[in-house]
Simulated assay, not measured.
Amino acid sequence: MTQTQQSREARLAEKLRENLRRRKVQARAITATGDSAPSSESGHKNESENESGGLPKPAPES
């Protein structure tokens, strides 16, 4: 393995550790407050979303 490959792998490993730490902090905050995550992360539908999960259709023009 070359020096640049080792350097790249070290950077990626550090980013993964940072991401893990950030996600743990978020999970602890959610658990502590009892709030649920946004619908895109938790898999639950938001009340404002329709069944397809998309934007509502505009009213037809006459």
Rank of each mutant, 00 (worst) to 15 (best):
T4A: 01
V25R: 04
H44S: 11
N19A: 14
T4S: 00
S42R: 08
S39E: 04
A37K: 14
E47G: 13
A59G: 08
E14F: 06
D35V: 13
P58T: 09
E14Y: 02
E18A: 10
N19K: 10
T33L: 10
S48G: 13
T33V: 06
E9N: 07
G53V: 00
A59L: 14
Q6D: 01
E41Q: 14
L12G: 02
A59N: 10
K15E: 12
R17I: 11
S42A: 09
G54E: 06
L20V: 12
Q6E: 00
T2Q: 03
E18H: 11
E47L: 09
L55N: 08
R8W: 03
S62L: 15
M1E: 00
L55Y: 11
G34S: 02
G43V: 02
P58Q: 12
K24F: 08
R22W: 06
R28V: 03
G43F: 02
L55W: 04
P58V: 07
K15R: 12
R8L: 12
E41M: 11
L12V: 12
A13S: 05
K45F: 10
R23W: 00
E14R: 08
R28D: 11
T33Y: 07
R11L: 11
P60G: 14
G53T: 03
A59K: 15
S62Y: 15
N50T: 04
G54H: 07
A10Y: 05
P60K: 14
E41P: 01
K15D: 07
R23H: 03
Q3D: 00
A59W: 10
H44W: 10
S39K: 07
E41V: 10
E61S: 15
R8M: 07
R22F: 09
V25I: 15
S52D: 12
L12F: 02
T33I: 03
K24N: 14
V25C: 09
S36K: 14
G53R: 01
Q5Y: 00
E47I: 10
G53M: 01
S36E: 15
Q5V: 02
